[in-house]
Design a protein around this nucleic acid. Structure first.
Lengths: 220, 220
DNA sequence: ACCTGAACACCGTTCAAGT
DNA sequence: ACCTGAACACCGTTCAAGT
């Protein structure tokens, strides 16, 4: 009668991702996860040693299909940009992923795949090994930084997020215009749009600087 | 008799920095801070609205004198690069600062000074307010990311650092060359040189992409 | 074998009360 | 004016007990 195996690693990871998607990573607690799963919070300890191991499991899952369905026929620039945008989304969704990145390079199957794809595309752009490696590092640095700066704000509700950005803009716009003329002048454009928009702009400027041959993808 | 004004913003910030240096940012709680200060933890709420405001105060203190002796007569590009390199060094030296940056800009005097100087130089480069703001965000994202990726390695001794980088390179060079040809090919150039070297390269590429008028500084 | 529920040692924050 | 201390609503985690 009693359907026994309610919980499993996969079920817990899937529910965790759903919960993080809905409430943000900051509100992700084992107590809430237990409530979402309809079980006691401590039941999770039957499947994961502690919260950190669960977060690693989530991180692996979030990175798993990062390179899965990247366009095969797009230009190198579009593929590189899309890869970085996806990595950034994964990092924002799971801040502990960024903490892992801090302690070293990927060195895991899914992440080797991402590095390989980025290096391949940079070679396709015409960069030699040394320049490709340097460009790869630059891209990862920008992506990790953008994600790190965005994690806290991303945890807010859309309304709160808009209010937060507006508050920051206002802080710059109301500075003493004699001491901070350029901050006041630029205030309306600081923290404008979404964080991903700002990242895409930064990424475009970096890719401009990296150069490489024009993408072979057909123009608009 | 009773010496009344035991607490002040400065005293609290100084004690916080000491506590973070000693125990690490993860263990920094108001209850521990209260114990370190010899007062009730909630007394801090007399001087800071909440923990977040305290963290901003700490971050601003750690950033102080960053813009103090920046060259006045150098080209915009040199000043921007030097500012970012210094900010990166501060972030690497005080990893907790990066964690604070996540919760938003400090919105305090020293941070405002840095932002103002960067925006001013970007205007000097010929960028209008919107482009200057976007470029500013891009520079901060790259700087924070580079610092975040470097903190763990920077904590090692020089020998350990060299060994760590060599180990990472080896991880890439010994991948299956059929599945990861470009990783194997680029392995010798991954994590090459110092992290600051890599950052300077990335910064140069980003500044190339940002464009702007050529710096007025005399050439070498 | 798997899950529960009480318990422990923590958090940030509020607020009435003290001096 | 400044600080205390109890209280509230949370955390992650352990462990004996249930089924």
């Amino acid at each position: 009668m009693a359907s026994r195996p309610v919980l499993s690693r996969d079920v817990i990871v899937a529910a965790s991702i759903g919960l993080i998607d809905r409430d943000g990573p900051e509100r992700f607690t084992l107590r809430r996860l237990g409530r979402a799963l309809g079980c006691d919070p401590t039941a999770i300890y039957r499947h994961f040693r502690d919260k950190d191991e669960l977060l690693r499991g989530i991180a692996d899952e979030l990175i798993s299909d990062l390179t899965a369905d990247l366009p095969r026929d797009a230009g190198w620039r579009a593929v590189v940009a899309e890869s970085c945008v996806r990595l950034r989304r994964a990092l924002v969704a799971q801040p502990h992923l960024a903490a892992f990145a801090r302690s070293g390079p990927p060195l895991h199957p899914n992440e080797f795949a991402l590095t390989e794809r980025l290096l391949a595309e940079l070679h396709r752009a015409g960069l030699a090994s040394r320049a490709a490696a340097a460009a790869y590092h630059a891209l990862i640095e920008l992506t990790v930084g953008s994600a790190a700066l965005d994690t806290a704000v991303e945890a807010l509700t859309p309304d709160e997020r808009v209010a937060t950005y507006a508050g920051w803009r206002r802080a710059y716009s109301t500075l003493d215009p004699v001491a901070h003329p350029w901050s006041v002048a630029a205030a309306d454009h600081l923290y404008d749009g979404t964080a991903e928009d700002r990242f895409r702009y930064a990424l475009d400027r970096l890719l401009d600087g990296i150069g490489g041959v024009p993408s072979a993808t057909p123009g608009p």
